[in-house]
């Protein structure tokens, strides 16, 4: 059978699509579209954090064992969280800072629920490195807070950006004191 013969004849006789204006045909096609869209959602939503990931989205930390002047780092949502038990001197310096000196003005009271404990997400706001200054003996930068070695950002004792390329202060994660010694982050 020569295929080209059929082609010539049928091509000239293109049918008027009988379904174009028919309600039932339109409804069927609409349902097919709706179904496809509904199926897309689970396939996309599966990329969102799973239940076991969400279960670790908030953690509880006992801060009573941190000696004054010491810091601890805990992991929260895959990122380091700095908790520093600040000395009187550090608190005094943080709250005495003049707002006009700050690139991203924020008072120390607004950043620490209890002045003794400063809780920060330990990720430099410049390009995501982890700043130094947690362990005794580490470089703390010119403002005695934290220093990011990647591109030289200096943070003060309230975690605010003072010098270097970072645009904003170190982020304060959402947290609450469940008791005097336990905080819940997240």
């Amino acid at each position: 059978m020569a295929k080209s013969d059929i082609k010539k004849t049928t091509a000239s006789k293109r049918p008027e699509d009988p379904g174009r204006r028919d309600f039932i045909v339109i409804a069927t096609n609409a349902m097919a579209g709706l179904g496809a869209a509904a199926v897309a959602w689970p396939l996309i939503d599966q990329m969102n954090p799973a239940a076991d990931t969400l279960a670790l989205a908030n953690i509880e930390v006992d801060v009573s064992k941190i000696a004054e002047g010491q810091s601890i780092t805990v992991k929260w949502r895959g990122k380091p969280v700095f908790i520093r038990h600040r000395t009187e001197d550090e608190i005094a310096r943080a709250s005495a800072t003049d707002m006009s000196d700050l690139r991203d003005p924020e008072s120390d009271q607004a950043r620490a629920e209890k002045a003794d404990y400063l809780v920060l997400v330990g990720v430099c706001t410049h390009l995501g490195c982890v700043p130094l200054g947690q362990k005794t003996g580490e470089v703390r930068g010119e403002y005695d807070g934290w220093f990011c070695p990647c591109h030289g950002s200096h943070y003060d004792t309230s975690g605010r950006i003072r010098k270097g390329p970072a645009p904003t202060n170190l982020e304060v994660p959402p947290y609450t004191f469940l008791s005097d010694s336990v905080i819940r982050i997240g």
Partner: peptide
């Protein structure tokens, strides 16, 4: 339920299209 309705509709639509 959704697919049952879809089966019925598609059968009706098919018969409509094939009527000629």
């Amino acid at each position: 339920f959704f697919l049952s309705v879809f089966v019925i509709l598609s059968i009706l639509a098919k018969r409509r299209v094939w009527a000629d």
